[in-house]
Amino acid sequence: MNEIQLIQSLQQGDKNAFSFLVDTYQHMVFNTILSIVQQQEEAEDVAQEVFVQAFISITKFRGDSKISTWLYRIAITKTLDHQRKKRSKKRFGLLKNVFAIGLQEEQVADFYHPGVQLENKEKSAILFKALQNLPSQQRIAFTLIKIEGLNYEDTSSIMQISIKAIESLMHRAKLNLRNQLINYYQSNK
C-alpha cells in the first residue's frame, strides 16, 4: 500500500488501514516521544494518543507532506502538551508540599534509553538528564537530529522553520548542554 492509497483509505475510516499505519510508524513515534518524555509508561500513553489523534484528524490532512512528517508533528505537539501538564501538576504539588509536614522531594530516576549500548549507558543518562533542562525547541531539534537520526531538511519540515533556524537551535542546544556538563563534571570531580 503506497502513501496515497493509505491516506485515502484512512480518510474513508478504514480500520485495517489504520492498523497498518500503527504497525508501520509505531516505533518511530514511540522512540521520539520516549526520548523527550524519558519515561516508558508515559511515552506509551502519549504515543497511543498520537495515533488516536491521527485517526480523528486524518480528514484535515491535505497530503502536502509525508505521513511520517505529519505524525512527527502530532507526536511533538502531544509530547509538549503532556510535558506542560506534567510541569503544572508538579508546581501545584510543590505548592501543596509547602504546607505539608514531612516534606519529601520527588527524586527523578535516571533515564536509560533502551537503544544505547551497554558501555555508554551511564554517560548517556547524564546527557538525557541535561537534555531535560533545554528549552523545548532546542530539545526537539536535538532529539530529532541526534536520536532520531533525521537530517536538517526533514527536521525543518517537521518543525516548520527554516534550515538556518534549525542550525541555530542545534548550536545553542549543544552550547547549553556543554555548559551543563561542565557544571556536572566540576561538581562531581
Partner: peptide
C-alpha cells in the same frame, strides 16, 4: 558524553 548517543538504536514500541 556527547558521543555516547552516536550509535543509538531506536527504541521499539511495547
Amino acid at each position: 558524553t556527547f558521543n555516547s548517543i552516536d550509535d543509538i538504536q531506536k527504541a521499539e514500541a511495547p
